[in-house]
C-alpha cells in the first residue's frame, strides 16, 4: 500500500514528516498544557526529534505552536472565569523585563566563558525543589484534612506562605477580584520578574516555574493559577515565535498541523480542570516536573533514548489520566442533568 499520503513535505526544513505524529504530539501536549497551565516545550522537542525533525527547527516550531495552543486554552479558561486578567497584565511587565534580563545575564556569562554543565544541574535542582514543594505541600494538606483543620473558604491548604507575603503592605495595594486576593502590586511584579529572569536564563517558557509561584507565593487558587499562567504563556509565546522566526528557525507548516491536534487536546485538558480538585492538579503537576527532572539527568549521562522514552511515556500516561478525568466528569454531569430533567418532568 502506498503510505506516502501520510507524509508531508516541510518546505523550509526540506524533510518529509509523518504528519499524524505531529497531530498526536500536538494533542497530548495540548491536553497537558490546558490542564497544568504550562507551555511544555520540554515535552515537544524529544517527540519532534523522534519524528525526524531537524533540531534547528524544533525549538522555534515548538514555541509558535505553544503560543497558538495557549490561545485556545486561554479562550476556554476565560469562559470558566479562570483567567485573572488584571493579575495577568501586571505580571506581563515583570515577565518581559525578567526574560530580557535573564537573556542578558546569559550573554554576559558567555562572554566571560563561564558556561558549563552546571546549568543543567541547577535546572535539575530547581525542578527538584518544585516537585518537593508540591509533594510536601500535598502531604501537609492531607494531614490537616485528617485532623479536620479547615481554614478559609478554599478548603484545606498545606503551605500558606502567601499569607505572610500578603502582610507586606507597600503601596499601591491592589485587589484581584478573580483570584480573591488583596496584596501589594509589587508582589506579583516581583514574582513574575524572578520567574522571568530564571526562564530567560534557562531558556524555557517559564510556565513550569510560574504556575507553582502563582499558587505558593501569590496565593492564587490552583484553577486560576492555571488559566492566568496560560495567558502569560500565550503572550510570551507569541513574542518568542517572532524572535525565533527572525532567526529563521521555524517551520510554519508543522506549526499548523500540530495546532489542529493541540486545539482538541487543549479543550479536553481545560474542561478536565472543572472536574479535578486543586490538589489533584498540583499532584499530577509534581509528577510531570519530576519526570522532566529525571529526563534531564538521563540526558546529562547521554542516555538520550531512555530520556525520550521516559518523556513520551510520561506524556501519554498523564494524557490518558486527564482524558479519563474529563470523560468521567462529563458523563457524571450529563447523567445528573438527565436525572434532573426527569425529576422535573415527573413533578
Amino acid at each position: 500500500m502506498d503510505a506516502s499520503w501520510l507524509y508531508m513535505f516541510m518546505p523550509i526544513a526540506g524533510v518529509q514528516i509523518f504528519w499524524p505524529g505531529l497531530v498526536l504530539i500536538g494533542f497530548s501536549v495540548g491536553t497537558i498544557g490546558g490542564f497544568f497551565g504550562m507551555g511544555g516545550a520540554w515535552m515537544v522537542t524529544p517527540g519532534l526529534n523522534i519524528l525526524g525533525f531537524p533540531m534547528a527547527f524544533a525549538i522555534g516550531t515548538d514555541i509558535a505552536h505553544i503560543a497558538g495552543k495557549s490561545m485556545v486554552s486561554t479562550i476556554r479558561h476565560s469562559k470558566f472565569g479562570n483567567v485573572d486578567y488584571k493579575l495577568g497584565f501586571i505580571m506581563i511587565i515583570g515577565t518581559m523585563i525578567g526574560i530580557e534580563c535573564g537573556a542578558q545575564i546569559v550573554m554576559w556569562l558567555e562572554r566571560l566563558g563561564q558556561v558549563g554543565p552546571v546549568v543543567r544541574w541547577v535546572y535539575v535542582g530547581f525542578l527538584f525543589l518544585i516537585s518537593l514543594m508540591v509533594f510536601s505541600d500535598y502531604a501537609k494538606a492531607h494531614k490537616k484534612k485528617k485532623q479536620g483543620i479547615v481554614e478559609g473558604e478554599k478548603g484545606v491548604e498545606g503551605f500558606t506562605w502567601y499569607k505572610t507575603l500578603h502582610k507586606i503592605k507597600i503601596p499601591p495595594m491592589v485587589h484581584f477580584k478573580a483570584s480573591g486576593i488583596y496584596c501589594s502590586a509589587w508582589l506579583p511584579i516581583l514574582v513574575s520578574f524572578t520567574t522571568g529572569v530564571l526562564a530567560g536564563f534557562l531558556g524555557i517558557g517559564g510556565g513550569l516555574l510560574r504556575m507553582p509561584a502563582l499558587i505558593y507565593f501569590i496565593g492564587v487558587p490552583t484553577h486560576i493559577a492555571v488559566g492566568t499562567d496560560l495567558f502569560e504563556v500565550m503572550i510570551s509565546g507569541l513574542y518568542g515565535a517572532f524572535t525565533y522566526t527572525l532567526k529563521g528557525r521555524i517551520e510554519l507548516v508543522a506549526v499548523f498541523v500540530m495546532l489542529t491536534g493541540a486545539a482538541i487536546g487543549a479543550q479536553i485538558g481545560t474542561v478536565a480542570t472543572k472536574y479535578a480538585k486543586g490538589y489533584g492538579i498540583r499532584l499530577a503537576f509534581g509528577v510531570a516536573v519530576l519526570c522532566c527532572m529525571i529526563s534531564i539527568i538521563l540526558k546529562q549521562f547521554k542516555f538520550e533514548m531512555s530520556a525520550a522514552i521516559l518523556i513520551l511515556g510520561t506524556i501519554s500516561t498523564i494524557c490518558v489520566y486527564i482524558v479519563a478525568i474529563m470523560l468521567k466528569g462529563a458523563a457524571a454531569e450529563l447523567r445528573a442533568k438527565k436525572a434532573n430533567a426527569q425529576m422535573a418532568a415527573q413533578a
Binding site: V72, A241, L259
Partner: peptide, 18 residues
C-alpha cells in the same frame, strides 16, 4: 506573518472547538 497566522489559527480553532 508567522505571528499573525499563528494567532489567527489559535483564535479560529479556539472558537470552532468552543
Amino acid at each position: 506573518w508567522a505571528v499573525i497566522l499563528t494567532a489567527a489559527m489559535g483564535c479560529i480553532l479556539g472558537f470552532l472547538m468552543d
